[in-house]
Write a protein that binds this DNA or RNA. Structure first.
Length: 517
RNA sequence: UGCGGGGUAGAGCAGUCUGGUAGCUCGUUGGGCUCAUAACCCAAAGGACAUCGGUUCGAAUCCGAUCCCCGCUACCA
């Protein structure tokens, strides 16, 4: 069985989950479910990054330990991922001992291989923020956190990773693996960046205590990226109980936001090279959701909160919108208006209404179940061919995250089915008793395609697909797209008289309700 | 400053590599249908393809210049 290992970043517990976290995770879930649907043995990892200075500071201010803070915040993620039906295989927390053990071992090996040395970390220090600013040649430096000019320079002992030694090996690797960073624009960015020269990287801090101690020198704590990135292998039990590691590593895809592309595409491969571990196949850096042309931020107050959206719209519609309008190459605008517009057009009008009108005719004309299959002619065959053509390309589209094409073709099938009904006019044909067999066949054809759609759309909208599958007497875990063909709907299945899968949404109502939430 | 991406109908995008009647979704307008969630189906309107110049029988597409917009430019999840 072909394996597929997919990851999201681990999210920092200092923040509450926002639409960006939701997007990355839903995207990963969609790919994971799609690959399962295609017969892959999928391992899907997500989790939380719980260490570091900010978490330590927030905990202090709140009067609790960092561990308590992490335990508290991680609940928000558990809850949200449950609401969104995220089908992760494992959820790693960097404060778990399995991770701490692995991260320390990772550090030890890289150190042993001669790529870590002790030196001094120098930088401007912003007193109010208690933050060391990135090293800079400038005389003055404004703090990225508060904007004030930092007043004093600080110098502290730190371990460094010899990133500078990896410039050529990284470039060689990128050149020989053109698909390792996607989309292409990110690949180019990373290439240019590495070509411009690499400096060694500080990988430890003495100023913090919340984290993984450096092996053999516990006054140092392993600093952010070295700790965080290693979760992708520690979660698989690397260096310890490594059955999962052997089975799933290297990752087929690390899904990340564009803000952390560099760390995944430069630092991570260099760390892995040093440790003698295989490199991930693809790192995909997607864009951001923007509101009013600005990155969402609490300061700007243009945050779209996930919880009220889920409450008002439900999990499937939120998932569908994010996937359908996914900002993969560039950033993308999001607004309640655009969400409602998309959901009404695609889900209520096209897909939901197709199901509704079909089921109602089956009831009106045949008491709720069908017992005849149609003879297939050009009209039916062209729809069947549209489906097989999509099915054959599905794996490729998923690997390359070509979601736009998947949804375009899926909705083309829905359009063809609606058109098929209009052209066949079952309501007119039914008036003559001679045509009743034909009408039954027409309805069977559509109904079987609703079954196919439920399987095709299961990775995007598991809840509504499960609703349909229940009606057809099939189980999600037993049915895959891989094995689905036209004509597998058993005769005699009883469908409900009325089924509104996706109610039409009123923009004014939604806006009003969002305000209340 | 350097590197990269982009400017196509009211909005959002495809088409540019491999020149030859400008396409998709939403919106607008008219029509059809009545099985359906005021839905669905058909049709129409709407574009000097950023600007200027060049190559060519012919350019959104190739070449040059100009003007705008956006991304990346290291320790920040």
């Amino acid at each position: 069985m072909k394996k597929y290992y997919i990851t999201t970043p681990i999210y920092y517990v200092n923040d509450l989950p926002h639409i960006g976290h939701v997007f990355t995770t839903v995207l990963a879930d969609y790919i994971a479910r799609s690959k399962r649907n295609l017969g892959y043995d999928v391992y899907f990892l997500t989790g939380t990054d719980e260490h570091g200075q900010k978490a330590e500071k927030t905990a202090k201010q709140t009067g609790i330990t960092p561990q308590e803070l992490a335990d508290r915040v991680v609940e928000n993620y558990y809850k949200l991922w449950k609401q969104l039906n995220i089908s992760y295989s494992d959820f790693i927390r960097t404060s778990e001992s399995r991770h701490k053990k692995g991260a320390a071992e990772f550090f030890r090996i890289v150190h042993h291989n001669g790529d870590i040395y002790k030196g001094f970390y120098e930088g401007w220090y912003c007193v109010p923020c208690e933050l060391i600013l990135p090293e800079s040649t400038k005389e003055e430096e404004a703090c990225p956190n508060c904007g004030r000019i930092a007043e004093k320079k600080i110098k502290e002992e730190s371990y460094f990773f010899r990133l500078s030694n990896y410039q050529e090996r990284l470039l060689e690797y990128y050149r020989s693996h053109p698909g390792c960073i996607k989309p292409e624009s990110r690949y180019n960015e990373v290439m240019r960046f590495v070509e411009s020269g690499l400096r060694d990287l500080s990988v430890s801090r003495v100023s913090i205590t919340w984290g993984v101690p450096v092996p053999g020198d516990p006054s140092h704590i392993i600093y952010v990226w070295f700790d965080a990135l290693s979760n992708y292998i520690t979660a698989l039990g690397w260096s310890d109980n490594d059955a999962l590691f052997k089975q799933y590593w290297p990752a087929n895809i690390h899904l990340v936001g564009k803000d952390i592309v560099r760390f995944h595409c430069v630092y991570w491969p260099a760390f892995l090279m040093s440790a003698g571990i295989a490199l991930p196949e693809t790192i995909f850096g997607h864009g951001w959701w923007m509101m009013h042309s600005a990155k969402m931020s609490k300061t700007l107050g243009n945050v779209l909160k996930p919880e009220p959206l889920l409450k008002m719209l439900g999990s499937d519609p939120v998932r569908y919108f994010l996937l359908r309008e996914a900002p993969l190459d560039t950033d993308s605008e999001i607004s309640l208006e655009s969400i409602i517009g998309r959901l009404n057009a695609d889900l209520a009008n096209d897909y939901g209404n197709l199901v509704s009108r079909t089921f109602q005719m089956i009831h009106k004309y045949f008491g709720g179940s069908l017992n005849k299959k149609p003879a297939l002619d050009t009209a039916e065959n062209s729809i069947i061919n549209a489906f097989y053509s999509l099915k054959n390309q599905m794996d490729d589209y998923c690997t390359n995250l070509n979601l736009a094409e998947i949804f375009r073709q899926t909705w083309n099938i829905i359009y063809l089915l609606n058109k098929y009904i209009d052209e066949k006019q079952p309501w007119a044909k039914f008036k003559s008793p001679d045509n009743r067999d034909e009408v039954e066949g027409i309805l069977y054809f559509i109904c079987d395609f609703i079954r196919i759609l439920s399987i095709l759309l299961y990775p995007a909208m598991p809840e509504s697909s499960t609703k349909l599958m229940d009606i057809f007497g099939i189980k999600p875990e037993e049915v895959t797209l891989e094995k689905t063909e036209y004509g597998q709907l058993p005769l005699g299945v009883q469908v409900p008289k009325s089924l509104i899968l996706f109610p039409r949404l009123d923009i004014k109502e939604v806006l009003k309700q969002y305000e209340i939430e």
